Simulated scan of single mutants.
Amino acid sequence: MTAPARHAFTVARLDLWIDPVFDAAIQDDAALRLSVLAAAAGDARTAEGLAQARAYHVSAARDEVPRGWQVTPDLLAACPRLLCVSSGGAGYDTIDVAACTQAGVAVVNQAGANAASVAEMTYALLLSLVKRLDESGAALRAGTARSREALMGREIEGRAIGLVGIGEIGRRVARIAQGFGLTVIACDPLLTAEEIRARGAEPVDFDTLLARADILSLHCPLDEATRGLMDAWAFARMKPGALFLSTARGGIHDEDALLAALDSGHLAGAGLDVWRVEPPSPASRLLQHPNVASAFHTGGVTHEGRRKVAAASARQISQMLAGIRPERLLNPYVWPRFLERLAQARAD
C-alpha cells in the first residue's frame, strides 16, 4: 500500500458492508486517506468524521442509512469541507442532489455497474411468476404435490414487455427479451424515439405502454417525477391479466393500489424486489399474496455486482479529487464550482 500524501484528502464511508475492492482502491491512492465511521445513529464520532471528510461514499438504500447520515441540507451544513458524494448504486435515494448542487458538492452514482445483475433479477421474478415456482416448491416440500396440471404455468413467448425507463438496466432487459421471443415497448422521457429504438424497443407514451404491455417492468429512478407513478389509475389502465414487475425503487408504485389490483384479479401477478419499507413486515398482505414473487432488494446484490459498484465508486471518487470529471456525474452544472472548491482545498 502506498503511503498517504502529506495533504491527503479524507474519504469517509460508514461501516456497512462493502466489497473490499473499495477500501483497497482508496488506500492505494496516495492522495487519499480512508475513514470508516460507525453507522449507528447519532454517534458523535461519525458526525466529527464526516465534518472532516472531503468525499463521502454512502449506501443508496435509504433503510440502511440512518436519516442523520443521509446527505440532506442539514448534513451538508454540518460538513462544509465536503467536496463530493458517491452513491453506492445506480439509485441515490439517500442523497439530496439539489441541495448538493447548491452547496457546490459533486454527486456521482454507479449506473450500469450492477445492471447485468438487476436485469437478470427482472427475469428471475418474471419466470418465478409464470412458472409458479414458489407454489411448486412449496407443494413438493409439503408432500402435497399430486398433479402436475394443478401447478401448470404459462409461456412468455409472444407477449409484449413494456419498460418504464430504458437506461443501463432497461436496455439489458430489452436485449434479453429478444431471446425469449418478447416484443419490447418502452417509454423514457430522457431519451428520443431514435435512442429508444437503438436500445431495442418500440417507443410509446406512458398511457400506450400501460394499455399494450402484457408485462410491465419498472427501470426508472425514484424522484419527484416518478414517486407514486404507478397508482390506482395506472394499474387500472393496464391490460386485464397483465403482470407487474419492479426492480427499481419502492415508492414508485403504490403498494395499496397494487394489492387492490391483485385482489380484484385485474392483474395476474407481481414480481417485487423493492418495497416501501425494506424489509417489509412479514405480515404485509402484499408480501403474503399468492400471486406475488418477492425478493429483498437483492437484484443488484450479487458478488459481481457489488464488486463492480465498489470499484466504480472508488474510481470516481479518485477522479473527482484529482480534478477529473467522472462519467456518472449527476449534477453537471456544479462542476465549475466544484473545481474552484477543490483548488481552494488543495491550497489550504
Results as ranks from 00 to 15, higher is better:
residue 1 M to I: 06
residue 3 A to W: 08
residue 17 W to F: 07
residue 23 D to I: 10
residue 26 I to S: 09
residue 28 D to K: 14
residue 32 L to R: 02
residue 33 R to I: 00
residue 38 A to V: 13
residue 40 A to Y: 00
residue 40 A to F: 01
residue 48 E to P: 03
residue 48 E to G: 04
residue 50 L to D: 02
residue 58 V to S: 05
residue 59 S to G: 06
residue 63 D to N: 14
residue 71 V to K: 05
residue 73 P to Q: 10
residue 74 D to G: 08
residue 77 A to W: 09
residue 82 L to H: 03
residue 111 A to K: 03
residue 112 G to D: 11
residue 117 S to D: 10
residue 120 E to A: 14
residue 128 S to G: 15
residue 139 A to T: 03
residue 143 G to D: 11
residue 145 A to M: 14
residue 146 R to F: 11
residue 151 L to P: 04
residue 154 R to E: 11
residue 157 E to I: 00
residue 160 A to I: 15
residue 161 I to G: 11
residue 163 L to G: 09
residue 168 E to L: 08
residue 171 R to F: 00
residue 173 V to P: 09
residue 174 A to G: 12
residue 177 A to C: 12
residue 219 H to I: 09
residue 225 A to F: 08
residue 226 T to G: 10
residue 233 W to P: 09
residue 237 R to W: 03
residue 241 G to M: 12
residue 245 L to A: 08
residue 251 G to H: 06
residue 255 E to F: 03
residue 257 A to D: 07
residue 262 L to W: 02
residue 303 H to N: 13
residue 306 R to T: 12
residue 308 K to D: 15
residue 309 V to F: 00
residue 310 A to K: 10
residue 311 A to I: 09
residue 311 A to V: 12
residue 318 S to I: 03
residue 320 M to L: 04
residue 321 L to D: 07
residue 322 A to M: 04
residue 327 E to C: 00
residue 332 P to E: 11
residue 335 W to Q: 02
residue 336 P to W: 12
residue 342 L to Y: 09
residue 344 Q to P: 00
residue 345 A to E: 15
residue 347 A to N: 00
